[in-house]
């Protein structure tokens, strides 16, 4: 089955990002496909590479990057939500006159249409939020 995920809370504050990751791993293990994970609301904070948790804590951002690389998952951060919360890639930084970007590896910034498209193309869309 082809899954799309919607993550609406940031990492660490809520368990939702962890649950979404565990769900992805279990689904992939069973041979399902994760087409896209769409990060919205505070969920966009899953995609900043400046995340530096204590050494004995899990690194949720890296976990997404690694999972995406290994299983070819499209990690999409909503542009409007990202702009509000200061998550930028190189293009966004240039367009908005910022002095740097902070997007993590394997993530890309795009529009809300990507979420609707996932809804159209996937067999199921699951929301993980707080």
């Amino acid at each position: 089955m082809k899954f799309g995920l919607l993550v609406t809370t940031g990492p660490y504050q809520h368990q939702a990002s962890d649950t979404a990751l565990q769900y992805c791993r279990a689904a992939l293990e069973k041979g399902h496909e994760i087409m896209r994970v769409f990060f919205y609301n505070d969920g966009v904070n899953n995609g900043t590479r400046y995340t530096t948790p204590p050494q004995d804590d899990r690194n949720i951002v890296n976990a997404w990057s690694e999972l995406a690389k290994e299983h070819n998952i499209d990690l999409v951060i909503c542009v409007a939500a990202a702009q509000r919360r200061g998550i930028v890639d190189e293009g966004e930084a240039q367009r908005n006159g910022k002095d740097g970007d902070n997007i993590a590896e394997g993530f890309r910034i795009s529009g809300l249409g990507q979420l609707v498209e996932a809804g159209i193309e996937c067999d199921r869309v699951l929301t993980f939020g707080g």
């Binding site: 769900y23 791993r25 279990a26 199921r124």
Partner: peptide, 16 residues
């Protein structure tokens, strides 16, 4: 979590 995945595939739709 594997059972969670099965519940999703066995049903027709999900609401969180």
């Amino acid at each position: 979590y594997d059972g969670y995945v099965d519940l999703v595939t066995e049903t027709d739709n999900v609401q969180s």
